[in-house]
């Protein structure tokens, strides 16, 4: 028996919005420590890794490890039927071929359930090595989304250059070029507005705007985003999900042909 309850459907709606741009379907691996999802986008360029810890749920029970392959388009149709303040419960029997989403209104007067067919997905799992990154940037998630959106207009690639002083985002193309520099915050009044840089070595890397823009669909989950970078290894874009886990995106830097 698997059962996971969240007191507000908003979190699950936001999680789904954060991954469905990149993934059409994905396997939710459930065990007694929580729910894990790891999947590459269709073109195998980026990797999405989602962790929802058992202790972050209002109720969580998972008697046996369970892998639930879901069509995220179908899941989105179902999640659209939940109000933000509904309680949402996901339920499945052991070895089931369906999952049930149950929504309960705050006053308990409306209860809906949606049963969705599960899929057998043959997905490759990747081992992500522990890495000490040369630069780690923490910045407002909204600001990062804005920069990716703005600079995408000027080119299909975004260059991120990180030094001790700050981080510079650049794009160039037919129109011309664009640069946005963010200085490291000197006095932190509001932590969620701060730009913090932990640098071992400066790095300059080039990334595809298209994927960065997809990653920023996770922006509503949190105030701050963390970018971890080293030369010649994938960028990690991490959004923490308050009290329950995180979604991380991995994207390989573009390289000279």
């Amino acid at each position: 028996m698997f059962e996971a309850r969240l007191s507000s459907a908003t979190t699950l709606k936001k999680v789904l919005d954060a991954i469905k741009d990149l993934l059409n379907e994905a396997t939710f691996d459930c065990n007694d420590s929580g729910i894990q999802l790891q999947a590459m986008d269709n073109s195998h360029v980026s990797l999405v890794s989602l962790t929802l810890r058992a202790d972050g749920f209002d109720k969580y029970r998972c008697d046996r490890n369970l892998s639930m392959g879901m069509n995220l388009g179908s899941m989105a149709k179902i999640m659209k039927c939940a109000n933000n303040d509904d309680t949402v419960t996901m339920k499945a029997q052991d070895n089931a071929d369906t999952v049930v989403f149950m929504f309960e209104s705050q006053n308990q007067e409306k209860v809906s359930d949606y049963e969705m067919k599960l899929m057998n997905l043959d997905q490759e799992h990747l081992g992500i090595p522990e890495t000490d990154y040369a630069c780690i940037v923490r910045m407002p998630a909204m600001e990062f989304a804005r920069i990716c959106r703005d600079l995408s207009q000027f080119g299909e690639s975004l260059v991120i250059c990180c030094t001790k002083e700050g981080v510079k985002f650049s794009a160039s193309g037919d129109v011309g070029s664009a640069n946005i520099k963010l200085a490291q915050t000197t006095s932190v009044d509001k932590e969620e507005e701060a730009v913090i840089i932990e640098m071992q070595e400066p790095v300059t890397l080039t990334f595809a705007c298209r994927y960065l823009n997809s990653f920023t669909k996770a922006t509503p989950l949190t105030n701050q985003v963390q970018l971890s970078m080293s030369m010649d290894v994938p960028l990690v874009v991490e959004y923490r999900i308050q009290d329950i886990g995180h979604v991380r995106y991995y994207l390989a830097p573009k390289i000279e042909d």
Binding site: V45, H125, L126, I128, D257
Partner: peptide, 14 residues
């Protein structure tokens, strides 16, 4: 010209 490598080039397939 820069090209986009697959993420599979960086992580081992388990």
């Amino acid at each position: 010209r820069k090209v986009q490598p697959s993420i599979k080039n960086y992580f081992n397939i388990l």
